[in-house]
Design a binder for these strands. Structure first.
Length: 196
DNA sequence: AGCACGATTAACT
DNA sequence: GTTAATCGTGCTC
């Protein structure tokens, strides 16, 4: 079942954990491309200096200030797209970055989008999964709760708290403390599809 | 108008 | 472990 708006309207760290085990689905040319979410990170508000919303409301960050349950897709390093899910109440800018998937449906199509020798490499990283699922600027702002969107998340088997690993967020090179070290990255323990 | 840098990845040594 | 690729964004001049 497609997750509803209320699922996303929660504290970001709580949502980041709740999304583990859920299934991200992309409809591409009538086909389902999907995978279980196995790794996430929380980015929370203007005071979190790792969050893009630290710059306040701009054209780029506007989606994060909108409804929960929308996709925030941004471009970085001159070549990569990142997928986030907007969290918390409208007007509070926060989102969950989807960092890795365990591929489930449409692996053959994903391989066409992203040629790799083995499926383990298909979605093991935030820019890898957007490439495999063909997620780019066209999906920025899309409502994951709408019946008509080509991107959504389905409920799954919740991962119990003891099965969730936690640690600092990845790639925050110049972010000052204490934000750089906040343990706001979550993953499914012992799952081989988690990024490295 | 110009500049430094980035929520990364792949291909090096 | 190091580095190139490659361009939108936000900040300074």
């Amino acid at each position: 079942m497609r997750l509803t708006r209320s699922f996303y309207n929660h504290p970001t760290r709580q949502l980041a954990q709740a999304l583990l085990g859920c299934r991200l689905v992309r409809r591409w040319q009538g086909q389902r491309l999907s995978g279980l979410i196995v790794e996430t990170e929380a980015y929370i508000g203007e005071t979190d200096l790792a969050c893009h919303a630290r710059a306040g409301r701009t054209a780029r960050t506007a989606v994060m200030y909108g409804q929960p349950g929308r996709a925030y897709v941004y471009f970085t390093y001159g070549m990569h797209w990142m997928l986030n899910v907007v969290s918390e109440a409208e007007h509070f800018p926060a989102a969950v970055l989807i960092r890795a998937l365990e591929p489930q449906e449409g692996l053959d199509v994903m391989q066409q989008h992203r040629p790799v020798p083995r499926p383990i490499e298909l979605c093991r990283g935030p820019a890898k999964l957007t490439q495999a699922l063909r997620i780019d600027r066209a999906l920025n702002g899309v409502d994951l709760c709408s019946r008509h969107s080509e991107l959504w998340i389905e409920s799954g088997v919740p991962v119990p708290a003891r099965g969730v690993g936690r640690g600092p967020r990845v790639g925050l090179g110049n972010t000052p403390e204490p934000w750089k070290s906040k343990p706001w990255r979550y993953w499914v323990k012992d799952n081989p599809f988690v990024s490295k």
